[in-house]
Each structure stands twice: as structure tokens, then as C-alpha cells.
């Protein structure tokens, strides 16, 4: 293994050496995809597609950014493509409407009060502890995976990738009011799921 790797590096053709990509970046890219998409299989496929797309253009890679940043950018575009196709699929099936009904249980239809069984209660865990608590993180991830995929897309693009609201609306073809409704409902659902599974 050792000798193969060093032999390979003698044949380096550019600033980037594709023979080493899997060892250096596969786990990182997989984790990056997995937290944004609720399917291990799809995340795996996207890592492969990223490498294949990168192979087509690595000779043009000029090292203006690091190799890792460059590969991550390719993967990000692929994830947005997935979001987009899922989003349009949702719109067609009319399940955007279904998801609009998903908070009717949380608040009273008439006056907007919290319904008893969904009323927020303290998690009973200090802020700092929660941030470092692996079990809590696992529950959050599991709760995220339960969200409708268009909600998960909006949530991760905003809260994990820190994308601008305009960019998210544009790439997912959402109106700004749809965007805010999704942001709100995703959070209300996530919070309730955390409470149910933690306390």
C-alpha cells in the first residue's frame, strides 16, 4: 500500500492528485452530505458523483482554493440539485399543502394558543451541556430526518450552510412567504420532537 501510494505520487499531473482523493476526503464529504440529506445511500452516491465530476475538470483546478474546498463546492451544487428536484416533486404532488397542515396540532386553530400536549417545557439540560451532549445531537439528527425533505433542505441550507434567504428561495423555487412558513414549521416540529424523545 505504502509503495503504491508513493509511486502514484510520482505520476502527479497537476496540483491535485485524484489517486489520493478517497483516502483524504471521502469520509469528510460523506459526513457533509449525510447531515444535509436524510439518506445514507444518496449521500454515498453524491460522494461518487462529486469525484467523477471533479475528475473531468481537475486539470483545470488551479489551486486557487484548497482541494478540499473545491471538492466541497462541487458536492454542494449536487446537493442543491437534489433539493431542487425533491422540491419540485413536492410541489407537483401537492404535498406542500399537506405539510402546511402539519402545525394544526401544535396551535389552537382559533386563537393560536399552544395546544396542551405540545406546549414547550424545559429540556432540563443546561445550554452548554446540550451542545456537547452526543445523545442529544443524535436525537436532533433523527428528528431532522423525520422532516419532509423540502423542510430539511430549507433548514440545513439556512442553519448549517448559512446561505442567504434569496439564494435558498431561488434554488428551491420558493416564494419568500413559503420560506418563512417552512422555517417556522420546521422549528416547531423539531423542537417538539426533541422534547418528546429527550425528556
Amino acid at each position: 500500500m505504502q509503495t503504491t501510494r508513493s509511486e502514484i505520487s510520482n505520476f502527479k499531473t497537476g496540483p491535485s492528485d485524484p489517486h489520493l482523493w478517497v483516502d483524504k476526503y471521502a469520509d469528510y464529504l460523506y459526513g457533509f452530505a449525510l447531515v444535509r440529506i436524510n439518506s445514507q445511500e444518496l449521500a454515498r452516491d453524491l460522494v461518487q458523483e462529486t469525484f467523477l465530476a471533479a475528475l473531468e475538470k481537475y486539470r483545470a483546478f488551479e489551486g486557487r482554493s484548497t482541494e478540499k474546498t473545491w471538492l466541497t463546492a462541487i458536492l454542494k451544487n449536487k446537493i442543491v440539485d437534489v433539493y431542487r428536484s425533491k422540491g419540485s416533486g413536492f410541489a407537483k404532488k401537492g404535498s406542500m399543502l399537506e405539510s402546511e397542515n402539519m402545525d394544526h396540532d401544535f396551535f389552537d386553530q382559533e386563537d393560536g394558543h399552544w395546544n396542551n400536549q405540545h406546549r414547550p417545557a424545559a429540556f432540563g439540560i443546561e445550554q452548554v451541556d446540550a451542545l456537547e451532549n452526543k445523545e442529544f445531537q443524535k436525537i436532533l439528527k433523527a428528528c431532522m430526518d423525520k422532516l419532509p425533505s423540502i423542510w430539511l433542505s430549507v433548514f440545513t441550507m439556512k442553519h448549517i450552510d448559512d446561505e442567504s434567504t434569496e439564494m435558498i428561495c431561488q434554488s428551491l423555487k420558493l416564494s419568500s412567504s413559503n420560506f418563512w412558513v417552512i422555517i417556522h414549521r420546521a422549528k416547531v416540529n423539531l423542537r417538539s420532537c426533541l422534547q418528546k424523545n429527550w425528556i
Binding site: L131, F136, Q137, L140, I160, K187, L190
Partner: peptide, 10 residues
């Protein structure tokens, strides 16, 4: 807290 945790997830 959820926003902070989401950021830490990766």
C-alpha cells in the same frame, strides 16, 4: 439552542 446545535452537527 437548536440553531447552535445544528451548526455543530457537522
Amino acid at each position: 439552542l437548536i440553531n447552535q446545535m445544528a451548526r455543530n452537527l457537522l
